[in-house]
Design a protein around this nucleic acid. Structure first.
Lengths: 344, 344
DNA sequence: CTGAAAGCGCTTACAG
DNA sequence: CTGAAAGCGCTTACAG
C-alpha cells in the first residue's frame, strides 16, 4: 500500500540506489535523471520510510530527553526546556522521545540498549550522576542540561548561576536592600546536597554577599510551595531584620510569598521578594506580580539539543554554554523600608 | 559490537527464528531449548534491536503526542496530560514522541507519512479539526484528548464538562452564591468559538444556571493571565452584584484574581473565585489559595493512551471516557457576602 | 553518473 | 518443537 523506493525507481526507470541518492542528496546525479525521479516521487507521493532508513544507516534521527518526572515535578520553567528541545529537534529533522524515568542508571541503560535513539539529553543532572557515567561507558553521545560536580570534558549547557545571582543582588541592592536572605529547597530533602542549582546558587550567594560586605543568611524552605508557605515563620526567626528574600525557584517563591502575606507582611512595602530560575508565566500570575531573574530555559533547551546534534554530526564535544537569566522587575520588589520616603 | 540475535543463536546452538520465538514468546519452545537460549542471552547481555524489530514486524511501538505548542502554551494542567501519557506509554513498552506542531493537517500528515509511529494522540482538539479528518483518511489509529463537534465513532477521552460545572456550581451555591459569573478566554480570540473546553463549559453553565433559576453572565477575559487581570474592570461593569466568579482555566483565574485584588476587592470576603480545569500545583501557589475543580489530566492522559493501545492491539474503537474534575475547596471561595454573619 | 548486490537485525509464513 | 528462507525498505561500498 505505501509507496516505496522500488515503486519510484520503476516509474522513473532507474535503480533504487539512484533514487536513494537523490532523496538524500548523497551522490551526484545527472539533471535529467534527477528530474525524472523527482517527478515520479511527486506523482506517487513518495515519503521515505523512517524506520527502514534508520536500520540501514544506523542513524534513527531520534533523540531522547530523560526527565526524572517523579523526583522533580516539572514546573513551568522546567517545561520550557522540554518544549524548546522538542522544537529544536524537529527543526533539525529529528524526533524527541520523552523518557520519564528515575534518576538512576539502570532504567536509562535498558532504554539505550534498544538502540532506538542516536543520543540523549539529560535533565536534572545531579552533582554525582550515575547516568552520566553509564552513558560515557556505553559510548552513546549525550548532552546535559545542568552539570555534574566536575563536568570537564562533558557536553553541557546550564544556567550561569554566578551571573544570575549577581544580577539579582544588583537589583535588590539598587533598591537599597542590605539584609537579603537566600531561600531555597530544604537541606533535609533527600538529595538536596546533590542538586546543582541549589548548591551553586547558595555558594554564589555566599561569595557575593561576602564580597559586598553583607551577611549571608540561608533559609531552607522545604521542597515545594506548601512547605515554603510554612517556612515564612522560620524566616522571621532567622532574620527578623531582613528586608528582602531572594528565592531559588518559582514554586518556592510563590509559596513563601503567600506565607509572608498571611502573616501580615506587605510585599514589597515590608519585605521584597524576588525569584531566580523562574518563568514569566508564573511571575505574571502571582500577586503581587513576582520580580524574577527569568530562566533561560528556552535558550538552554535549544542549546542542549544543538550540543548533541554537533556530536551526532561527527563534531567534537562542544564547549559548555552558560546563560544568565534576565532580570524582570515587577511588583514584588521595592525600595528597602529604611529608604522609603513616608513610613506606612 | 552490539549483541545480535545471531550471536545468541550461535551460542545456544539454535536458529535465530527460535531465539525470536522465546524473546517474543510468540511460539511454543521446549523447556530445555528455552533455557539454553535464555542463558545465552543473559551471558551475552542481549537486547533486541528496536528498529530492526519495527521494520520486520511493521510495528514501531512508538506513538506520537501532537501538541500545538504555539497556539496553546502549556500550563501545568496541560502538562499533566503529557507526562501521564508518557508514563502510560512507557508502562506498556511504547515510546512517546512529542510533536510540537501547528493545529492543522499538513504538518501532521508529513510526519505520519514517515511511518515512524503506530498511532497518534491529539491534544487541543478543535470542534472542527482538520487533523482528525486527515487521520481518518489515512487510516492510522488515533485517540483524542478532547473531541470534535460530532465525535461519534471516534476514540476520545475528555473532561466531563457538565459534571464539572455542576460540581463547581454546587460548591458556590452551597456557600450561598446566586450571582455567579462565568469567565473564560475572549470571544475575540482567533479560534475561540472552535475551542471545545470553553464552548462546552459555557453552554453547560448557561443550561445549569437557567435550570437553577439563576441568571447566567459571561465574562470574556482575553487569552492569558495578563488580559484577565485587565478584565477585572469589565467584571464590575458586567455584573457589579456578582458575588462569585467561576473561571474556565487556571491561568485566567490567577490573572483575574490579581486584577480584583488590585481594585481593592477582598477574596473571598467581597467576591469568591473558583477555577475549573486547574492543577493542584497552581492552586497552591495562588494567594489566597485557589478553590478549584481539579483537572483529571493525569487520568485522561492515561486513558487516551489506553484508547490508542486498544486499537493497536486490534480491538475496536473503545467507547469515550469522560471524567469530571474533583472539587478542592481552598481560601478563594467563602460564604456569599449577604450571608456573612458580620459585615466588613 | 548509474546499477547490482550485500546487508542493517529482526519477524513470519512455510515446511518438516 | 525447530529451521531455512524470504522479506521489511532502505543505505552503501564496490564496480563499471
Amino acid at each position: 500500500m505505501p509507496v516505496t523506493m522500488r515503486d519510484v525507481a520503476e516509474r522513473a526507470g532507474v535503480s533504487i540506489a539512484t533514487v536513494s541518492f537523490v532523496v538524500n542528496n548523497s551522490k551526484p546525479v545527472s539533471a535529467k535523471t534527477r528530474e525524472r525521479i523527482e517527478q515520479a516521487m511527486l506523482e506517487l507521493g513518495f515519503q521515505p520510510n523512517f524506520v527502514a532508513r534508520a536500520l540501514a544507516s544506523r542513524r534513527t534521527h531520534i533523540i531522547a530527553l530523560a526527565y526524572p518526572a517523579q523526583e522533580h515535578p516539572l514546573d513551568r520553567s522546567g517545561l520550557e526546556f522540554v518544549l524548546s528541545a522538542a522544537r529544536r529537534a524537529k527543526a533539525s529533522h529529528h524526533h524527541l522521545v520523552i523518557w520519564p524515568i528515575a534518576n538512576e542508571a539502570d532504567e536509562l541503560m535498558a532504554l539505550v540498549g534498544q538502540r532506538l535513539v542516536d543520543g540523549v539529553v539529560l535533565m536534572e543532572v545531579q552533582l554525582d550522576d550515575a547516568r552520566v557515567d553509564a552513558l560515557q561507558a556505553c559510548g552513546l553521545p549525550f548532552a546535559l542540561i545542568g552539570r555534574t560536580r566536575d563536568p570537564e570534558g562533558l557536553a553541557y549547557v546550564d544556567i550561569d548561576f554566578d551571573a544570575t545571582m549577581e544580577a539579582a543582588l544588583d537589583h535588590l541592592q539598587g533598591l537599597g536592600h542590605r539584609n537579603i536572605v537566600f531561600a531555597c529547597g530544604s537541606s533535609d530533602e533527600p538529595g538536596y546536597r546533590l542538586y546543582g542549582p541549589f548548591v551553586r546558587q547558595e555558594s554564589a550567594y555566599r561569595r557575593l554577599m561576602e564580597e559586598r560586605g553583607l551577611t549571608p543568611r540561608i533559609l531552607y524552605t522545604g521542597p515545594d510551595a506548601q512547605a515554603a508557605t510554612q517556612a515564612a515563620v522560620d524566616l522571621e526567626a532567622l532574620a527578623p531584620e531582613a528586608t528582602a528574600v531572594l528565592v531559588g525557584g518559582e514554586q518556592i517563591a510563590s509559596g513563601l510569598m503567600a506565607g509572608l502575606r498571611r502573616r501580615g507582611r506587605r510585599i514589597p512595602e515590608d519585605i521584597s521578594v524576588m525569584s531566580t530560575v523562574a518563568s514569566r508565566a508564573t511571575a505574571a500570575t502571582c500577586f503581587p506580580t513576582l520580580s524574577i531573574v527569568a530562566s533561560p530555559g528556552v535558550e538552554l533547551g535549544r542549546l542542549a539539543v544543538d550540543a548533541l546534534l554537533t556530536q551526532l554530526a561527527g563534531g567534537p564535544i562542544p564547549p559548555p554554554e552558560l546563560r544568565a537569566g534576565v532580570v524582570e522587575p515587577a511588583e514584588s520588589t521595592g525600595p528597602a523600608p529604611d529608604r522609603q520616603p513616608e513610613p506606612a
